[in-house]
Design a protein around this nucleic acid. Sequence first.
DNA 1: CAGAAGTATTACGTCTGATGAAGTAGTTAT
DNA 2: ATAACTACTTCATCAGACGTAATACTTCTG
Lengths: 108, 108
Amino acid sequence: MIGSDVMRGYNDLMILSLLAQEDSYGYEISKKIRKKSDDTYIMKETTLYSAFTRLEKTGCIESYSGTETNGKQRTYYRITDAGRALFQQKCGEWSLVKTVVDKFIHSV
Amino acid sequence: MIGSDVMRGYNDLMILSLLAQEDSYGYEISKKIRKKSDDTYIMKETTLYSAFTRLEKTGCIESYSGTETNGKQRTYYRITDAGRALFQQKCGEWSLVKTVVDKFIHSV
DNA sequence: CAGAAGTATTACGTCTGATGAAGTAGTTAT
DNA sequence: ATAACTACTTCATCAGACGTAATACTTCTG
């Protein structure tokens, strides 16, 4: 089980990564994250939807209403160029973080 | 440059890792982190000292006053068994996080 | 010897992002 | 009809990081 405190810095990256592949909506993204992590990480709904709000406010994603539905109306999200740029930047940062954190673990 | 938001989950791990090697104090730990990260990550003083307070409150580290000084009086910290256990647990979590986050990056 | 720079820590108020709890609303399976 | 699943929202709270600033002692430099 992965705690939310250690994933905190990567929620946006995960969301942007999934949206870079195809447009999606909250419930689906939540399922995808859960599945991709082999059930080790489950992003809380409130965390996910508040991330959407934040990313949209900063112009990284855009929303539109979906037509098909299996329940309540879906809100789809699409990544923007700014979002793609942020994603690339976060990927670079991630590889730096890996290098740094690993140094603290392996030297023990 | 690594932003503090992405390191947030690893500050405790870094501190515990350094204290697992030898007792130390704030200013020194701050320098060590900076150096080990090749100046890519600089932990703010307030962040560092508040981490000490938290880790001491939870019994992961213990403090004592140092005798030698090059300025203001130092407060040294020593890791406890509970701290070592937490460190081991965080290391396991870190390897899980690496696996998961990498999946989101490489699939793009 | 005065002042600047370095060593070392603490206090305080603020902000962001995650959380729990709860609710709303529609669809599908039993 | 009713439980279960799909899908999203609101609101109040909390931890941890941040900026700013102050304190206090030592060492270097002119």
